[in-house]
Amino acid sequence: MSVKRLTVIGIGAGDPDHLTLQGAKAIAATDVFFILDKGEEKSDLVRLRHRLIEDHAREPYRIVEARDPERDRTTPAYTEAVEDWRERRAALYLRLIDEALAEGQTGSFLVWGDPGVYDSTLAILERLPGFEIEVVPGISAVAALTARHRVSLTSVASPLHLTTGRRLSEQGPTADDMVIMLDARCAFDGLDDFDIYWGAYLGTPDEILIAGPVAEVGERIKRERAQARERKGWIMDTYLLRRR
């Protein structure tokens, strides 16, 4: 008996050329693409997905779009809010797959960056039994960041800690080299014994890159981050902290 196949395809950090040959082949082998709309503010994210499908998909194929469930970003119960959002997203995925994907067909989710780095798609699909799932890695925001700054991600004999702005704010520095994802709090503020390599909208025409000692460029990052978020309505940023 044939089963429904799901492919999670990493599409890179924002540049259409980030798509790998493996990713292009996976798009070409897809029957149904599932795309979640996050609202007008983040329409850039949807447009890139449509462009990659137009460039690499093979007829006949279908695109199924739905509105992404809202997550409660006001509650202090962060873990519970994320769990609730994942449960509602899993229910939405299951409904879309049941309605749009036939037995023996392949449905794909195009994931920003790399599916294995700071993304919830795999954790959500794991809640849905009975499907064959394949993962195609992509160029992560972390890889794009270090490439654009022309710097190595790791130092000799030094551990690397990948964490969030929320955790850095709560715990402080936990290693000499740290990658911080999505830091609305600008938790680097005051870490004057670190250099920072910061980037937002990596790989897109709106890309912003700033690097230097935190004491010298921290205020500029905060200012440009706030202005960019006000201008676009959203921001995705990543940075590397390295103790001086």
Rank of each mutant, 00 (worst) to 15 (best):
T146G: 02
L160S: 12
I221H: 04
W198E: 09
R148M: 08
S140G: 12
L168G: 10
D176G: 14
A187G: 14
V135C: 06
R167G: 06
P213F: 05
E99Y: 02
W198H: 04
T146E: 00
Y118K: 05
V156N: 08
T174Q: 15
P137G: 09
T204F: 09
V117F: 14
L168W: 04
V156C: 09
L160I: 15
D176S: 13
C186I: 03
D177F: 03
D176Q: 08
E216M: 01
Q171G: 11
G165N: 04
P173F: 12
D192S: 10
A187Q: 04
A147G: 13
R185S: 15
T174D: 11
I139S: 05
S108V: 02
A175H: 11
T106I: 14
F109A: 07
T106S: 13
A102I: 01
L125N: 05
L122D: 01
R166A: 12
T204D: 09
A143T: 13
Q171C: 14
T106K: 04
L153F: 08
M178A: 07
G116N: 15
G104M: 09
L96T: 13
I139D: 12
D193H: 07
I221V: 15
G104D: 12
T174I: 13
A175F: 09
D119V: 11
I124C: 11
E170F: 08
S152R: 03
R185A: 15
V179R: 03
R150S: 14
T121A: 07
E216R: 00
E219Q: 12
A100F: 08
V142A: 08
V217L: 04
A144P: 03
E99T: 12
A141S: 15
H149M: 06
S120L: 12
T121W: 01
F131C: 03
E132Q: 14
F188D: 10
I133Y: 04
V111R: 01
Q105L: 10
H161Y: 11
R148I: 07
T154A: 15
A184N: 10
V151W: 00
F131V: 04
A141H: 07
T163W: 04
L128P: 00
R166I: 11
T121L: 08
G113A: 09
G172L: 07
C186E: 07
V111Y: 01
T204Y: 08
G107A: 15
E219V: 02
V136H: 00
R166G: 11
V117K: 06
R95I: 02
F109H: 02
I210F: 10
L168E: 06
L209R: 01
G130S: 11
I208Y: 01
D119H: 06
F109D: 01
G203H: 00
G199N: 09
R166D: 07
G190T: 01
V214R: 00
R150V: 07
A100D: 10
V179Y: 03
A200R: 06
C186F: 06
E134S: 14
G218T: 04
H161P: 00
D183L: 04
Y201A: 15
I221K: 07
R185E: 15
D206Y: 06
G165Y: 00
F188K: 02
S158D: 13
L96K: 07
R185W: 10
R167W: 05
H149T: 05
A215P: 02
I180D: 03
I208N: 02
H161K: 14
L128C: 03
